[in-house]
């Protein structure tokens, strides 16, 4: 499959379908991007599992760190890899040894490994690369629009009522709202690495 662009339906389907997310490379430091994403997703009801061998014994927002995917000890729906591109393959190989297999492998903004993606897709795992699930959730729910960010979605439908204060639902009917011509140039920017 083409990993340069994803349809909103593909991403929305993934974020609506998964319930548990293991975040590889999660950081307990509360100014790190992985911490931001972990907290955001936890607040939206995902069962979050922090994976980082350097922090075993600590916990992240009440969830104990585990050293590796194998140590999770229960099925997980999605592996979110917060590592840079050169560290992706070993994590994907480890994920392929899990039983049952995860449904989705997601590589963070800035991270992409096409060979690893092909391996995962060969056994039926859906792959997303070079995206942030927090940003995608914010975009598709339109929460990110509060920050003046181009959500690239349009909708004439009344959005579902906000829950828990002002949290907006992902279940919003929208059409694609135009491209940012910049996205390819932007993809060259190295951003998140752990």
């Amino acid at each position: 499959m083409n990993h340069d662009t994803y349809t909103d339906n593909y991403i929305r389907g993934i974020l609506n379908g998964v319930k548990s997310i293991a975040m590889v490379g999660a950081s307990p430091v509360n100014v790190r991007p992985s911490y931001f994403a972990f907290k955001y997703l936890a607040e939206r009801g995902y069962d979050m599992i922090p994976v980082n061998p350097g922090h075993v014994g600590k916990s992240l927002l009440g969830k104990p760190f585990v050293a590796s995917l194998a140590d999770i000890g229960r099925p997980v729906d999605m592996i979110d890899i917060f590592r840079n591109s050169s560290h992706i393959m070993p994590v994907v190989e480890e994920a392929l040894g899990l039983s049952p297999l995860p449904k989705v492998i997601w590589m963070q903004l800035g991270a992409r490994d096409d060979a690893a993606a092909t391996k995962a897709e060969a056994v039926g795992i859906k792959v997303v690369m070079n995206r942030c699930p927090k940003i995608e959730y914010g975009r598709l729910s339109s929460e990110i629009s509060w920050m003046g960010v181009n959500s690239r979605t349009l909708s004439s439908k009344r959005a579902p009522m906000p829950t828990q204060g002002m949290r907006l639902s992902l279940n919003r009917m929208s059409v694609g709202g135009g491209e940012t011509a910049a996205s390819d140039r932007a993809a060259k920017n190295k951003t998140e690495t752990t």
């Binding site: 909103d8 629009s145 181009n150 349009l154 909708s155 004439s156 009344r158 959005a159 694609g176």
Partner: peptide
Amino acid sequence: MTDRLPGFSTLAVHAGAQPDPT
């Protein structure tokens, strides 16, 4: 399959705005 991209005039009317949820 990719998302259809709306034209400039459609964006000028719709981008950023949606019916108020409440």
